[in-house]
Simulated assay, not measured.
Amino acid sequence: MSYQLRREDVIDVAELKAMLEHSPGKAAQAILAAAGQGVVEAQALLGQILLDGHGIEQDERLARHWFAIAAQAGNAMAFNMLGRCLEHGWGGEVDLTQAAIHYAQAADADSDWGLYNLGNLLATGRGVPVNQAQALFCYEKAAHMGHAKSMNLYGRYLEQGIATTASPARAVRWYRRSAEAGDFRGMFSLALVLVERGEVAEAAPWFERARGEGNLSFLRSALVTLQNAGPVLMSFAARYAEELERREE
């Protein structure tokens, strides 16, 4: 039986999001109904659950369709997620130029994720010309909005002096904020600078947390960094290698 919304029902998108945690099937039906009634936030949320297959059968092409509908209405989340579909080829062709356009629209709507994703394209020259100054602007703005991944990248720009004056002290502060906000790359960045300061004991738990929480791509790159960093980090390198081997089995 499909979920039907009555005219007198009050559509609370926050409530629908909470419902996804404990009753995803019922929530998906309610989101579908609300999206069909033109509730823009529900349309964007429908795109997300279709993309994830959460409470509903996964359908990347239909997810992209609903993100596009919500984006036409100016929804910041939809702008960002449509950009991700276009960047990664979810539900259709890859189009990095259009991805950058949609990320920029999300960024203009003060989406921290839109700023972060646009910054990544600007930093690497995918879909747009390389522009480190603009990438720095995106990361800095998102970092000040509390975006943990952007905090780490803003710290990197400060540490390495990319498109700005190098400021190692400020970089460490941002790495710490990123780590404390739960970003495993920020944890790793913080641990590395702590080792450079000779504070290996303080670095150790951050290395361990990053090892446990990081994804496979991170573990592979982190292992190379640790292996090339000298004898002091070889014990950490061994633990990262063990973790990587365990996950790849």
Rank of each mutant, 00 (worst) to 15 (best):
A44Y: 00
M234P: 00
L16Y: 01
R209V: 01
R185H: 12
S111H: 02
N117P: 01
L50I: 02
R64T: 06
D108M: 13
S178G: 06
A34D: 02
Q72R: 15
S178N: 07
G127Q: 01
R246I: 06
V193I: 10
S111A: 07
F218E: 06
Q72W: 00
L118K: 05
E248D: 12
G53L: 03
L32V: 04
L86Q: 06
M151S: 09
G74H: 08
A229G: 10
A166I: 07
W113T: 08
E213H: 07
L219P: 09
S111I: 03
V10Q: 10
V193Y: 03
S217I: 03
R185T: 11
D183A: 09
N215T: 08
P24R: 03
G182T: 06
S178A: 14
F207V: 02
W206P: 13
R177H: 03
W174N: 05
L216D: 14
S111G: 08
L96I: 04
F67H: 08
A237N: 04
E243P: 04
L153Y: 09
N120R: 15
P205K: 01
L20P: 00
E249A: 14
A109W: 04
M151Y: 07
A201N: 09
E8W: 11
P24W: 03
L82G: 04
E60I: 00
F188Y: 15
E21F: 02
E15M: 09
Q4F: 15
A99L: 10
G155C: 02
E57M: 13
A201D: 11
E180L: 12
E213K: 10
L32K: 05
F236H: 12
A148N: 06
Q29T: 11
A203L: 09
A71D: 01
E57G: 04
E248N: 13
E242H: 06
L190K: 07
D183H: 13
L194C: 10
A181K: 06
G214F: 04
V39W: 00
Q58K: 15
T225V: 13
W174M: 03
L16A: 03
E15R: 12
E243L: 00
Y103V: 08
G214I: 08
I69C: 06
V224R: 11
S111L: 00
P231K: 08
